[in-house]
Amino acid sequence: MQRILEVKDLSINFYLREGVVHALTDVNFEVFENETLGVIGESGSGKSVTVQSILGILSQPPAKIVSGSIRFEPESRNLELNLLPTYGDTYRNVRWNDISMIFQEPMSSFSPLHSIGDQISEALTLHRPELSETDVLSVCLGLLEKVGIPSPAMFFKRYPHEFSGGMRQRAMIAMALVCNPKILIADEPTTALDVTIEAQILELLESIKSEFNMSMIYISHDLAVIGEISDRILVMYLGRVVESGVADEVIDNPLHPYTRALLKSIPKIDQPIESLDPIEGSIPSPFEVHTGCPFYSRCTERLGEICLRQKPAHKTYNNGHKVSCHLHA
């Protein structure tokens, strides 16, 4: 399998009036062709910042890439995205054309003043100027039908607020597919939706992914969802990748105490609810600077002084399972 995206030692800071937030610290991962990479972490773990930095849609300032690189198609075109000017032609052509994104809030991610059709077709007319108006329309209507919208032609002319959250998210998925991208990023696409709709959307995403031959980066704070949809999993905590590996391996044999804690906190149908173990404490203040392991304050398996004082190194096992914890030094 070929790598389509490579993120190396990526560190991003946010320079705010209240202080500096180290949003990402030495983040490393790659995405292969046709695979689904699941990214999991609590809110504030840096999942969204990671994918937004790939698309170059972080507001800079306050965000700033301090070090590291983001390479798109490192084997062939080898575009170093982090070095491209944000609104330059090269980067703009990567956006939506090669990498597109489904956002968390289908309501606010659409402009309320423009028709859904206008917003869906916009990227297509932008990136494929050679297409005629009727071609654009037929592509869009076809996609709307594919994502399960009953009468696409009518839908096309209407406005976002006239539809339910589920419908809007379907429209968003159709919009993300117009340019047939190589990578589809889904940033918690079901968080704002009902549970019943969530299952439908997940199913839709899986079928579309295989039909369109894309890679997908799926972000969620729900390990159950991630385990189901991903080929490989990335576990993030406080802007760091603490564990990564093939999905089954990470779920069945979690190495990091944080991953274990996450797994314990998933409710299971055959267990009484009392057996759930929530992770104690809450995420430390984002302004805090950690000399040792960032999970130290909440870790139930911490070793002592070494965890507080020294940053854990990354350890890679033969099967590609990586972990960053003093327990596995």
Partner: peptide
Amino acid sequence: KPYVITAKAKGLKF
């Protein structure tokens, strides 16, 4: 607002 980010992600000129 998020819709501005969406538009930026689509590759529009500023």
